[in-house]
Write a protein that binds this DNA or RNA. Structure first.
Lengths: 341, 341
DNA sequence: TTGAAAGCGCTAACAC
DNA sequence: GTGTTAGCGCTTTCAA
């Protein structure tokens, strides 16, 4: 087994006691400068590093944070995790990652497991299935700091970092309207999610501000069951068979945006017939055919901000006065028009 | 602070000693069935879970594995991590993830940090900058199990899981040849990487088997410095200005594949003029314009296989006789021809 | 200025 | 059958 140098090893070699070595290495309080130097130099020489597990056991602090996301294999989440990891690394924290696959039981199981491993805090993006937050809330009340990012939990107020989903949706919808579209269908994720609600509000507000009637029959909610490509294609076919059929689609989810593009592609519908706008963090979205006007979230920055916030909470657990909620702006990218009109 | 139930709590409540409780909870060896039941039931009732940190300290086993990758925000790696996490979760291991950003110093630092945290093993995909494996090798020799995935380290033989890069490259190149292309340029990552070498070999072999001369002037190595889009575009421009210019490009890297597509798109080169084939694990690659014939790696499965292998090594550290090396087949996806010829 | 000892939660060798 | 004890590596009183 891998067997690093311990404080005891140093103490033996230098003919000192463990406590002297320990104190020399930490603050050096009450130890002669000579001894401190001796110890420090020797420690550096043998590349001594304190065993974090032992430190944890004493302090109940592990210098690690747990990240709980629906899935890692997703452009938004992988970018966010990259941001999380960057800040964590810089500040000396390890990052534990686990996926819920949108299952509430797993989510809770993972959170408990992380808590047991003495993570110092949790970064969570809620699974779409979760409706009962009480257990998570219990962990939080028991002293485990939690920061929600992207998919926040309205039901219990704590620290959050997310995109301005309302604004992003509003702007994109307005853009469709200004492009002359009046019958804008909506594709959306389960309505339980905070992001879904906010984006839906943005869409409705934009319609209202432009005196366009909201038509419930144009709303398509996916993912109550597993949301797959075929489901989306069918819904689009059905929409296009309507009497008063839509001339545009607004999509509130990354995954569904890609499915829609694929469906339009397969159904040979061009942007002229059916203009599309939606959220996406894919890094090649601008090369897709048909082209999408897309709202991009600052995923990396959201990860960074959430991590900074969490570490701040962890490191001065005194000031749990007000809950900070950061909102990052989204970016609207207009699709280049490739269709000759 | 979050304060879970300890063995001591149970012992006190039940008027037993710690060791009795401990043994009841583990094997129950030498304890009356009655006591075992009593303890187990009470433990379940209060939702007792052993403190993993304390267990680790005793056993130097943490039931966690470290994953070291260049970056998380990449389709191949995020898919692989999803696979890793799935298997790990199922087998009760936690997953620590850290990114090297292709920097050897970071890689080593992360590996050491993980080792200190008593991860039970490491899953690594080497950074492109690494040329000296001795420190990693030391960790491994000191008893830390390591499985390499995707980007393996030829210099030291251990357990590996990777794609059949040679075969994938061979097939793709051959496909270009059969499509009538004779001047096939190559875009490739730094030549230090195992995957690069293997893919290059596949390319060369295919040329040779079809009696096409290898033309060194068509080889473009990127990423000695940071590889960015502009670099790729410039190289393509330069290629297309050649007298005997290429009629196809074969690309050995996911990232560069995307850059090439973007460049052809911007330079308005279509597949007829310049046919492209390359590695990619993007899930929307088939919707990109111009279209790419792509080799897809079984990223998720590679992650799974590597994790299974690692856990097997961890759990019977006796049999370190032969090093297992798994090779997963790649899938060749032919671009649908959209150009009227 | 330094050392001895206890304890974080758990396990295992050794008593009883 | 069950309890006592020591120890994993480290920190932190308390004594010297």
């Amino acid at each position: 087994m891998y067997k690093p140098v311990t404080i005891k090893d140093i103490a033996n070699t230098l003919n000192l006691s463990c406590s002297t070595v320990s104190r020399s290495l930490r603050n050096g309080y009450g130890i002669s400068a000579q001894t401190v130097n001796l110890v420090k130099e020797y420690a550096k020489k043998v590349n001594y590093r304190p065993n974090p597990i032992a430190v944890n056991l004493k302090s109940s602090r592990s210098h690690s944070i747990g990240v709980i996301v629906p899935t890692v294999a997703d452009s938004f989440f992988s970018q966010a995790i990259a941001g999380i990891e960057s800040v964590a690394y810089e500040k000396g924290y390890s990052v534990l990652v686990s996926q819920t696959h949108e299952m509430p039981e797993r989510e809770l199981d993972i959170a408990r497991n992380f808590a047991q491993r003495s993570v110092d805090g949790l970064l969570m993006s809620m699974s779409s299935g979760t409706s009962d937050y009480s257990s998570i809330k219990n962990l939080n009340n028991a002293g485990l700091p939690i920061v929600f990012f992207d998919r926040t939990a309205e039901e219990f107020k704590t620290f959050t970092v997310a995109s301005d989903n309302f604004g992003g949706a509003y702007n994109a919808t307005e853009w469709l309207i200004k492009a002359g579209r009046k019958n804008i269908a909506l594709f959306t994720n389960v309505s339980r999610l905070s992001v879904t609600k906010e984006r839906l509000s943005g869409y409705k507000k934009a319609l209202k501000d432009h005196q366009i009637a909201f038509r419930p029959e144009l709303i398509n909610t996916c993912g109550k069951e597993m949301c797959d490509y075929q489901q989306i294609e069918n819904k689009i076919k059905k929409l296009m068979a309507m009497e008063n059929k839509p001339d545009a689609i607004f999509i509130t989810s990354d995954q569904i945006s890609l499915y829609c593009i694929r469906a339009l592609h397969n159904l040979k519908l061009n942007s002229q017939e059916l203009m599309i706008a939606g959220f996406s963090n894919s890094d090649v979205i601008d090369l897709l055919e048909p082209s999408l006007t897309y709202i991009r979230q600052k995923a990396f920055e959201i990860g960074q901000a959430a991590t900074e916030m969490l570490i701040k909470v962890i490191e001065n657990d005194s000031s749990v006065a007000g809950f900070e909620c950061r909102l990052l702006q989204t970016e609207l990218h207009i699709a280049t028009q490739k269709i000759a009109s």
